[in-house]
């Protein structure tokens, strides 16, 4: 028997790591991977709550989150390629066309 709070703490830690990576990293690909890390953290709480309440809907939602993550990864990486083509850099600090 593992307490539910252990799963939630692990999930919160993964999410916090994702947020930290998103804010601290400068490489656009690593920032994108931090977003995937956040999605994984949320998925873990979905599955933990599904087991807690004996309801399989949580696992179905994880499936949908994965579908959205896959679509997001495909479009996001295409955007990264387009940015690299026009700006010749992966550093987000150099992609500052909309900055005042």
């Amino acid at each position: 028997m593992v307490p539910l709070s252990y799963y939630l703490v692990l999930s919160a830690f993964l999410f916090a790591c994702g947020v930290a990576g998103f804010l601290l990293k400068r490489n656009i690909i690593t920032i994108f991977m931090s977003i995937e890390l956040m999605l994984n953290g949320v998925n873990l709480s979905f599955v933990a709550f599904a087991a807690q309440w004996g309801n399989l809907s949580g696992q179905i939602f994880v499936f949908f989150v994965m579908v959205v993550a896959a679509a997001e990864a495909a479009v996001g990486l295409a955007i990264i390629i387009a940015v690299y083509r026009t700006r010749d850099t992966l550093n987000v600090d150099r992609v500052n066309l909309l900055k005042l």
Binding site: L4, L8, V9, A20, A51
Partner: peptide, 28 residues
């Protein structure tokens, strides 16, 4: 503030749930 958020989350989660997840109780 990120650290504070983490501490708050851990505190909230550990103090307001005492239930345990039985392994394999739900078979997906």
């Amino acid at each position: 503030s990120l650290l504070l958020l983490g501490v708050l989350m851990v505190w909230a989660v550990t103090h307001h749930s005492t239930t345990s997840v039985a392994a394999g109780s739900l078979y997906g």
